[in-house]
Design a protein around this nucleic acid. Structure first.
Lengths: 111, 111
DNA sequence: AAAGTGTGTAAGATGTTGCTTAAATACTTA
DNA sequence: TAAGTATTTAAGCAACATCTTACACACTTT
């Protein structure tokens, strides 16, 4: 998870993920989308993403095709969702508190 | 989102988030959980988390109480889930391909 | 008001990241 | 096999992140 979250923390790498989400894209085509940084820079980002398990690589002749590997995000998604779900808990608590504040009203739900 | 994901990329900060997920915790109590790093280091992490919108701060007398602010994770969670959902798409595609491979079988589902 | 707690800020050392240019590798085509 | 195309690796550098120690601030208690 650590590696995946570190990888995803960089905006260029997030842009790459979006680019290869639905289809394979060659290293060159990916690099062409980033006019501001050099091809080697993109290549380094790709290496990091592959190492983090976030990208699948297929070598075909001259070229290398990258594609999102969503399973690599599993742990990161789980972690963030677990944290995120705390908001539901808080809303629920607030609702219960408010409900209890209505004096004399019975709570229909069990527990 | 960028700030939130960068904040979450650090393991110490993730540990802090877990610590304050369900309850308020004072800066000192948080720091006590990290025997390996100094109190000021923890304080700096707290500042980063607050700046990223991931922590709520309540000052009470001498102490400062921190608590998870799940809304701060909204964009990050959405992004990761969007990426993550690509796996569902892929499984669906694979299933359809396989189905089509069964010669002469009709596809019952529309589209 | 002085001393005691709890906490944050400043300054600086150290390690890490992300970029660039130059060179190397891998495969393809003439 | 020589030249061409696609891509990565190497080396070096500037910027940034994280830690530490020393200090400052804000409240509380005596």
């Amino acid at each position: 998870m650590d590696e995946a979250l570190r990888a995803v923390a960089d905006p260029t790498r997030r842009a790459i993920l979006v680019l290869v989400r639905d289809r394979e894209v060659s290293a060159g085509d990916i690099a062409r989308h980033f006019s501001d940084i050099s091809r080697p820079a993109v290549s380094q980002h790709l290496r990091i993403l592959v190492a983090a398990g976030l990208l699948d690589l297929r070598r075909a002749g001259n070229r290398r095709f990258y594609r999102l590997r969503p399973e690599g995000l599993a742990e990161a998604v789980t972690f963030l969702e677990t944290m995120w779900s705390a908001s539901l808990g808080r809303l629920k608590d607030a609702a219960e508190r408010q409900e209890r504040a209505h004096t004399g009203e019975d709570d229909m739900r069990g527990s």
